[in-house]
């Protein structure tokens, strides 16, 4: 099986979908000619293959980029636009929150907006808080959007292909920390359905629900705890909305314990939503109070020791696990 970084897997998905459907086009800042000439990056080589008619480099204009997607999608095209870094979502947010998410509803179901907004995300680059800020909970809070956050290259490819074929607006958030670590990706064509979590590790003692860049932390911690005889079950959410409640609840029923792990800050984070779902629908399964392991409620700092302090790590997860075992 081929081994690809997540950026390369995204690249394959874009390439396959653009070959399949002439209505798919990509647009954004540096999606064609980029300041990064790196084959590990998601849009590398697409301009050369598909030309400037379908690979649209835009001015630094996030509202226009998102508006481009909304208007073009209404006409039946399949735009895949890129917001360079998650914090810049704020500049595009009116088009996404008030328009992509709501215009179908306002039309009484007459219109649809089959667009994808790819957003590069994640801490760990020393870039500071205006380039690193995980805002997935904001988008998950908007009915009308679907929010996808893959944790593996293979899932990224299959999920992005499904997102492009979905007739709803999809926010597709890629953790840049996953761009550079090669992971196995099937070579044949496949689609990974939106709205289905995936159990990445079976275990009997404790459920960890996580997504995106934190999957690796969870898997590493699980191996260590296994040596102590504690078996964690790792649920990779993959899609935040629509949320796969069933997989979460089935796992918690089996293990009786829950930790939600995410890189985003704690207050108002999506971990609270998972916790609420389990309290409302699975309280009777719990043998111990559930826990959240998250970034602290601070902007992501630039200095390496401070940023390391911010990002939840294996020790944080192991500590929380021991507390509730």
């Amino acid at each position: 099986m081929q081994k690809l970084g997540m950026g390369q897997a995204v690249n394959q998905a874009l390439k396959e979908e653009m070959q399949r459907d002439p209505n798919v086009f990509i647009a954004g800042e540096g999606v064609g000619v980029s300041i990064h000439v790196n084959p590990m990056f998601p849009t590398h080589g697409l301009l050369e293959e598909f030309g400037p008619g379908r690979v649209k480099d835009t001015p630094v204009s996030e509202a226009a980029i998102a508006g481009l997607a909304v208007g073009a999608a209404e006409a039946g095209l399949k735009p895949v636009v890129e917001i360079m870094f998650n914090p810049f979502f704020t500049l595009a947010s009116d088009m996404i929150v008030n328009h992509a998410a709501k215009l179908r509803y306002l039309s009484g179901g007459k219109s649809s907006f089959p667009l994808v907004v790819r957003i590069k995300s994640g801490a760990g680059f020393g870039a500071g808080c205006q380039h690193s800020h995980n805002l997935e909970a904001w988008t998950a809070h908007c009915p009308g959007l679907k929010v996808v956050m893959p944790a593996t290259a293979a899932d990224a490819k299959g999920l992005l292909k499904s997102a492009i074929r979905d007739d709803n607006p999809v926010i597709f958030i890629e953790h840049m920390g996953l761009y550079f670590a090669p992971m196995p990706v099937p070579e044949q064509e496949y689609l990974t359905p939106l709205g289905q979590a995936d159990i990445k590790r079976q275990g009997r003692d404790l459920t960890v629900v996580t997504w995106s860049g934190m999957l690796g932390v969870a898997m590493g911690a699980a191996e260590k705890l296994s040596q102590e005889g504690i078996e964690m079950e790792i649920v990779d959410l993959r899609t935040l909305t629509p949320l796969d409640r069933e997989t979460i609840l089935t796992s918690v029923e089996k293990t009786g314990r829950l930790i939600v792990l995410h890189e985003a800050t704690r207050t108002g984070g999506f971990g609270g939503e998972i916790a609420a779902v389990v309290m409302e629908e699975g309280f009777r399964y719990l043998k111990a109070p559930l826990r959240r392991v998250t970034g602290p409620d601070i902007p992501v700092p630039a200095s390496p020791p401070l940023e390391k302090f911010y990002i939840p790590d294996q020790n944080d997860l192991i500590k929380a696990a021991r507390e509730i075992m």
């Binding site: 226009a64 481009l68 208007g71 999608a73 209404e74 006409a75 088009m95 008030n98 328009h99 215009l103």
Partner: peptide, 20 residues
């Protein structure tokens, strides 16, 4: 296909529609 009450929002959407 779109009447929006967010002042200024018609413009980027029209750009997208014209792009199509």
């Amino acid at each position: 296909p779109c009447t929006t009450t967010v002042v200024g929002a018609t413009l980027p959407i029209a750009v997208g529609r014209a792009f199509a």
